[in-house]
Design a protein around this nucleic acid. Sequence first.
DNA 1: CGTTTACGTCAGCCATATTGACATATTAGG
DNA 2: CCTAATATGTCAATATGGCTGACGTAAACG
Lengths: 182, 182
Amino acid sequence: MADVNVSTASTRLPGPESDRSGAGGPVFDLIELLFFAYRDFIGDADELLAGIGFGRAHHRVLHFVNRHPGMRVADLLEILKITKQSLGRVLRELVEDGYVVQKAGPADRRQRLLYLTSKGEALARDLAALQTRRFVRALAECGPGARAAARRFLVAMIDPQAREGVERLIARADHAGRNRTR
Amino acid sequence: MADVNVSTASTRLPGPESDRSGAGGPVFDLIELLFFAYRDFIGDADELLAGIGFGRAHHRVLHFVNRHPGMRVADLLEILKITKQSLGRVLRELVEDGYVVQKAGPADRRQRLLYLTSKGEALARDLAALQTRRFVRALAECGPGARAAARRFLVAMIDPQAREGVERLIARADHAGRNRTR
DNA sequence: CGTTTACGTCAGCCATATTGACATATTAGG
DNA sequence: CCTAATATGTCAATATGGCTGACGTAAACG
């Protein structure tokens, strides 16, 4: 699954058959809830982005460049796991519109290190604020300890082999980011 | 954001600046963890689907028709929030390949009620099993009570206005599904 | 009998991703 | 110093999965 809605859903679906929901059955409820939760989670940002003609691809770049200012194009490709051709268009648009700048690496001038402009930082901040707001609201509803529990749960959902890389990525940005997010 | 990887990420990103991570700051860790968790969650299914030339669009249809056998095309459009033109292609492929059948409604013969064939049910079951396996593993890692906590958290992440519709959708399928999932 | 509903389909457009080939600049190594 | 490898960019073609608008057909409804 990927992106569904439901909302009013005037649907009056039929209702046959029996059983399931037993001990070891499929966790349909969690599957669908994660699906809908993620849809709404990215929906916040999608709306804002659509207003300026950007899509999720632009969001991804803004997010990671914001978290890792000065990252190389190759780093971004590695994280996003897309081809440079795909990144090319998105990056060009972000540069043309003044959200991202590329500077030659000081040591290796072949590199085009990526930075957000203040305009880019503002947009990244707005996008992160939308998604943070949703998390904060949800965690408040879940009571104390929910944040740690949610973090543990989300980590546990990630492929075991990928966890180390993800946690290092987060830790690195958190560490480096002591001045950022201003 | 939508789909990132990371994995080995030989990246050796730079680390400038200061501050953040304070009390009320952006929850970058949760934002990225949800992103990666969802990526892996759908990645399971994506792999299986790619092997038979299907994509996420097919998965969505299989999933909801499996959960609500006999649903109308209009119901599916409402849930998926896509246009009938978009659904058309996917549905045609699923029917052509023998995963879905359409039967005229008994009362209203204009309706093309949607059902999975046994082949379609087998695929839907395999897909759900993959995603269930991930949830079960993750919840086991989180200890007792994690399932209820995860459910609460995921519901809390959904738009408040959409929650009722989603919960009704899940309840309806669970109720109707007492014989299904065979 | 005429309107509305449920569904399908043709035609074209857009965003995002892919592969493969090739260009350019720069660094690194023998 | 010259060659090879690296970092990045770009051209071209293709696929997927969305979209809008227009139109058609069968069946139900009033």
